[in-house]
């Protein structure tokens, strides 16, 4: 289910995302929901990169979720991929309103231990925000897509 009320609440995510990035020493952070909607980001230079990381991260999360279920787990707490210069952390978490996925990229200024530590704080902060601390009305995908028919001319009116 896609959120139709994000513009109202998404700006409130900026502070927790910024703090998570600063405290955990992250290079990039992306917060998406399970529908693939980008809720917040920090560190990306191009929209194209945001979309790429969001789609790949959501795909990795879906695959790992399927693997977890295959071996009898409800899900994994997080995923961590370590590279030579950069590492990726994918942390799914549940808020009262919806399930979210944080994707974080970090380098030598941080560690998986630090990211885990401040991820817990980040989850608590987001879960307490208006828009996520309680279930919100959503529109189904078909209605949403229909709504998207409105074009720029509708904005400016006549």
């Amino acid at each position: 289910m896609r959120r139709a009320d994000l513009a109202q609440f998404a700006e409130a995510l900026a502070h927790p995302v910024e703090r998570f990035a600063r405290e955990a020493g992250l290079r990039l952070v992306l917060l998406i929901n399970r529908s693939g909607q980008v809720l917040a980001q920090r560190g990306f230079a191009r929209a194209l990169d945001v979309m790429g990381v969001a789609s790949l991260g959501a795909g990795i999360h879906a695959s790992s979720q399927a693997l977890a279920e295959l071996i009898g787990e409800a899900g994994f707490r997080h995923l961590h991929q370590g590279g030579t210069a950069s590492q990726v952390f994918i942390g799914p978490f549940r808020t009262p309103a919806e399930d979210l996925i944080a994707i974080a990229v970090f380098g030598e200024d941080s560690s998986i231990g630090l990211v885990q530590l401040f991820f817990a704080t980040f989850v608590a902060e987001v879960s307490a925000l208006p828009g996520w601390k309680e279930a919100r009305p959503t529109t189904d995908a078909r209605a949403f897509e229909k709504d998207l028919e409105a074009g720029l001319e509708n904005v400016f009116g006549s």
């Binding site: 020493g25 941080s110 560690s111 998986i112 231990g113 630090l114 885990q116 530590l117």
Partner: peptide, 25 residues
């Protein structure tokens, strides 16, 4: 490098995971 605990012997109330991550950093 990871800031993760390998072994710990801590008094009650000492947050081992946090100490490990922060001190390693």
């Amino acid at each position: 490098e990871d800031g993760l605990v390998v072994a710990e012997e801590l008094m009650l109330g000492v947050p081992g995971d946090a100490v490990a991550a922060l001190v390693a950093s």
